[in-house]
Write a protein that binds this DNA or RNA. Sequence first.
DNA 1: CCATTTTGCGTTAACGTTAACACTACAAAA
DNA 2: TTTTGTAGTGTTAACGTTAACGCAAAATGG
Lengths: 349, 349
Amino acid sequence: MENKRPTIKDIAKIAGVSHTTVYRALNNKPRISKETRKRILGIANRLKYQPNVLARGLIIKKTKTLGLIITTIRNPFYSELAQVIEETARNLGYSLILGCTNYDLNIEREHINILKGKGVDGIIFTSAHVKDPNLEELKKEEFPFVLLNRRCTGCSELSKIPQVLIDNEMGGFLAVEHLIRIGHTRIGIIAGSEESSVTLERIEGAKKAFKHYGLFFDDSLITKGNFLMPSGKIGLKDLMDSSSPPTAIFALNDYMAIGVMEEAHNLGLRVPEDLAVVGFNNIEFASFYNVSLTTIGQKKKEMGEEATKILVNMVEGKTEKSGIKKFTPNLIIRNSCGYSLKGYKLKKI
Amino acid sequence: MENKRPTIKDIAKIAGVSHTTVYRALNNKPRISKETRKRILGIANRLKYQPNVLARGLIIKKTKTLGLIITTIRNPFYSELAQVIEETARNLGYSLILGCTNYDLNIEREHINILKGKGVDGIIFTSAHVKDPNLEELKKEEFPFVLLNRRCTGCSELSKIPQVLIDNEMGGFLAVEHLIRIGHTRIGIIAGSEESSVTLERIEGAKKAFKHYGLFFDDSLITKGNFLMPSGKIGLKDLMDSSSPPTAIFALNDYMAIGVMEEAHNLGLRVPEDLAVVGFNNIEFASFYNVSLTTIGQKKKEMGEEATKILVNMVEGKTEKSGIKKFTPNLIIRNSCGYSLKGYKLKKI
DNA sequence: CCATTTTGCGTTAACGTTAACACTACAAAA
DNA sequence: TTTTGTAGTGTTAACGTTAACGCAAAATGG
């Protein structure tokens, strides 16, 4: 039984023409008569011909495959992003190779090498380190990639890389402003990994909010996390152990915010009565009534689409070699800050 | 500036040997002297040589790439699975192309064709349709694939396909048994998509529990869902609209169970006081105190690993061409059924 | 010490495409 | 009629590997 998939040459043999003629028929190239084309396409259909992307890729150096590098797909923020990226990529004719790094630059590097070896046309990098030698190298090689929800301030050259992001600083500002306006002054911050641009910018925004409202910003109220759920727990514990603990928490993403709420429960703290919590990202679970997390929303769908489209454009040589697309975040008020409870009211500004 | 990645021939030129010699050096083949090998490896390292997987794949028909077909990565159950699959695949030297189908057999088919065109070595299919012509065809072509958390009872041939699953029937039994033992007799079921083997088996288990405890099983208490969160909402609404609504719900996965809890809240029903809810899968969020969903746990990590390893073994020709690996589910009791509340107590059996 | 094997290379041809270029026949232009 | 153009086709060589085979020189063995 012949299980081998048919090749151009197989079709050529059947049609009694040269493989080049078949190629012309299949790829809508000129210099072939209507009749032969039709005949060949008929045979190809019958045999269910599918081009061999490997062989093609070897020559045209394109594989219709993109890489997606994320930290961990377990974080719902990334799985939601991955979903729209896969979908838009597919609609544009591309497949997606998924690579998780666990925030490890060495694994990232490994992924990059493998992806290049497999001839991917471009890579989407999502949030991680600000300073990343891997990216600098890629940039030097003029390998196409875009940064999604991730900045690269560390490296001058990289400012020219296409970046799709939200205004994290504004997001941080909005989050803390909300807490201040409902009456909090001691606000703890659960940071993300400190090498991440996202962390830096959101904290920067938080500081601006403090300043704007004439409040003192206490550095000791920042505790280091890593964007994963457990670090929210640890972070809260640390903060509550201090001599004058915060009355509100700004967790730099929802995943950690949920950890905060978990630990609050363990510590016997009620949310929002004893502790207000605000997150960032508006993952699907944040909206559930029994989570009901006040958070900062961002247009994940639009951002994922945008990043994918930009990358595909680069790959296909359709302009847009650089530029920053910045989206605007918005505050989504739910119950975790008690905004809707009596006893709290919004300060006039 | 030469940005092109170095090839075997480039190295050969520098080393002053033939490309075959370089090949032998790089791939630990015999028939080469220790010194030349060392010299060549030195050059290769210096040039940061990375083999071109496309060219290699063209000949050896292996690409060190696997396909992972899932319905949607947004469902945390699948993102948790994807995480471990990516990780084990990477550790075994494989990359993963991710394909989401949205439960659409045509999209699945499209994915399969593309994956084959890209020369993936094998594919992991996760839960979807029982009867799937795509799989029958793959089987006929002897293309390597494994079924993860998915059965293919529809097609006789496919019983020989490696399958990694949990005992869904037992899981369904455990879930309903629990509800019965804490006193419920009218138990609504939110089914998954009806073409799914998972749905059928879990319902089968539920029915057995009814029978085992001498209870009448009311078919009208099954409502059709699709494993997505919103269908949990709709399902509950439908069930509660009936003339004699259930006092407990068995949602066939956690994602829908959360939808059920959402809708219960909207309908003014307290969980677990007015409505007990049990799910299936034990996704991470189920464990959070403010969700606290009683559910059926399965060894996702082990199953993902197992499926990946089996597939890699098949691909690499290391036996294990068929066989079913069945894992045992376990009941995880949290608060959504009120087991821990006074007023409820466990019936003796 | 000669026959045989082994070692250390090189040559050449695949793999399934794409692409440069060559050729023929026939039509249009000169 | 000769030239020029071009539609339709074929030949051949890439792409970067793997792999079959060939062939000296060195090593082994009886």
